[in-house]
Design a protein around this nucleic acid. Structure first.
Lengths: 304, 304
DNA sequence: AGCATATCATAAGAAAAACCGATATTGCAA
DNA sequence: TTGCAATATCGGTTTTTCTTATGATATGCT
């Protein structure tokens, strides 16, 4: 049993044209149909609606009052259809031509602009959308499909997301220019013994890693302050509140400007893993998979 | 080559339900379809639109941003569809249950209320819409299908309209109660010789008929005033401006109230033909053809 | 009025599509 | 990993839609 009338936009266009040109055959031609098919379609529609839309008993045919109502319906739906197609086109263009990346702050603007430059060279037409977020928001953004790729440290694959290796950033000791250790380029872990130390919040993976390292080296430090982000730690170190350990990369600008000094740990064994994160089984568009290639080929493990 | 996607409201309902329940199989059940058919329909739609509406690669499935756009489209169109159906239902009820009549003023309210009473007795559920118009507007209303039946005098069939006989109303001489002729019940045409006469406009059929009659009887009258409608003529006669000739029927109330007196012409040969007019090949609803029967069976030719 | 012409309706068969049942594949959770 | 439930796919059938050919009808012209 058929409950709904299978009226398609093709039908709507046909009816609209019939009403406009007051002719079935002309409307049929305009819609690439035989006159017969058009006639049948209209008759069928009228049968199903149980009203006559046109008075075909005179020529040129006349539209009935029911036909007028239906005509308005046709126009409204076709207008809405055009709207839909327009917005889908916009969306498609975006979806095919842009890659959306969410990155933690400490990946850094300067890092990103390098990547953006190479991306732009490879995909001149494409757009790269980057948003900087707190780590948990990066994860969320990828999970919610608000971003195609996420760049974040200490990420682990989960049921929802895959974490691919990207960089292992060497961690160094950050000191203020006036600090006692400031003149030495390399130091052993032991040199940190009893230093006033500015750490990350206890529950952050980076702090867990630092704690594990110091424990292994049997070094204890005096934690004087804790923050949940690198920016604050850098500021505190620069103000001489103590020393810290952080990825060398995030200090580059501060070193150049003389605000901070980096001391490399003698056997270099401490690295912050930064990973590329994406949804499992996600089908990337061309641009995004291109970007992914780009990122993975510069996979500079154990790089400064 | 297929240019338009044959999407029906059935499809729209399906998509809407899939989005709402986040399940193809549930939506399929709700729409009395097999899971297979639903799956194919969605896949086909996505193929044609060149976007994916749902991410079926996870469970429960997720709606994409294109899917959200499409969902809004579905809801809008389905809402518009409901609207259409509602207004068509109202229209159908009206069309099946009402007869629309356009009548000239001089058919008279009292005449019409008689007819209405008999109509109401025969079709208790039905509605009778009567509008009183000037003669040319009655013709127009029927021609434009604004009225199903027209009641007007001196109508002739044309290419567009058919005129059926209805009544031949006896024409009488109208005089004011104080007039010299007022005491006589019957008069010959000759009695009108040189009387001050109030006529219709020259180009009206009724006046042509009166002129022809007087010419035949070799009677001349002094036309002192002309109007294009009976109401004004009655008023002028009542005020003693002169006598006139008009259908007896339209004077009934004025006679009862003593405003006018009717003198029958001795050989009664002057009749105003009132006709029922309708569009050629018009298909009447039950109520209207019932009304037509009613009118034609009381076809009182040569009646007062 | 009757004929000519353009238009619409109808019939029958062909083409296209939508649909179903069965089965393979896949995502997810235990 | 295995099992379960949901989705995709395949092959074949049914239903719908379309086309061509032909019949009916309205209108205009002679």
């Amino acid at each position: 049993m058929l409950w709904v009338i299978p009226v398609s936009t093709a039908h709507l266009r046909l009816i609209r044209d019939v009403a406009h040109h007051r002719s079935v055959s002309k409307a049929a031609r305009l819609n690439h149909l035989s006159q017969s098919a058009a006639s049948q379609a209209i008759a069928e529609l009228e049968r199903e609606l149980e009203v006559s839309l046109f008075d075909r008993g005179r020529r040129p045919l006349e539209i009935t009052s029911a036909g007028k109502l239906y005509l308005e319906y046709c126009k409204d739906v076709l207008r809405r259809d055009d709207e839909l197609r327009a917005s889908l086109d916009v969306l498609k263009k975006q979806m095919n031509g842009t890659a959306r990346v969410a990155a933690i702050y400490s990946v850094g603007l300067s890092e990103m602009s390098e990547i953006e430059a190479r991306f732009a060279a490879r995909f001149p037409q494409a757009e790269l959308q980057v948003q900087y977020l707190r780590p948990e928001r990066v994860w969320e953004a990828v999970e919610m499909d608000e971003a195609d790729l996420g760049l974040m440290s200490y990420a682990e694959s989960s049921r929802e997301l895959v974490a691919l290796p990207w960089r292992d950033e060497e961690m160094v000791v950050a000191v203020a220019p006036g600090h006692a250790l400031a003149r030495r380029g390399f130091i052993p872990a032991a040199a940190l013994q009893d230093q006033e130390f500015i750490g990350f919040d206890d529950d952050l993976p980076i702090q867990e890693q630092i704690d594990r390292y110091l424990r292994e080296k049997k070094v204890t430090v005096q934690v004087v302050l804790r923050f949940d982000n690198i920016q604050m730690i850098k500021e505190a170190v620069a103000h001489g509140a103590g020393i810290s350990i952080m990825p060398a990369r995030v200090m580059r600008e501060d070193i150049r400007q003389g605000r901070l000094i980096a001391l490399r740990l003698k056997p270099a064994e401490l690295y912050r893993p930064v990973r590329i994160v994406h949804r499992r089984r996600k089908i990337f568009n061309e641009v995004t998979s291109g970007l992914l290639d780009l990122l993975r080929q510069e996979d500079t493990r154990h790089a400064a």
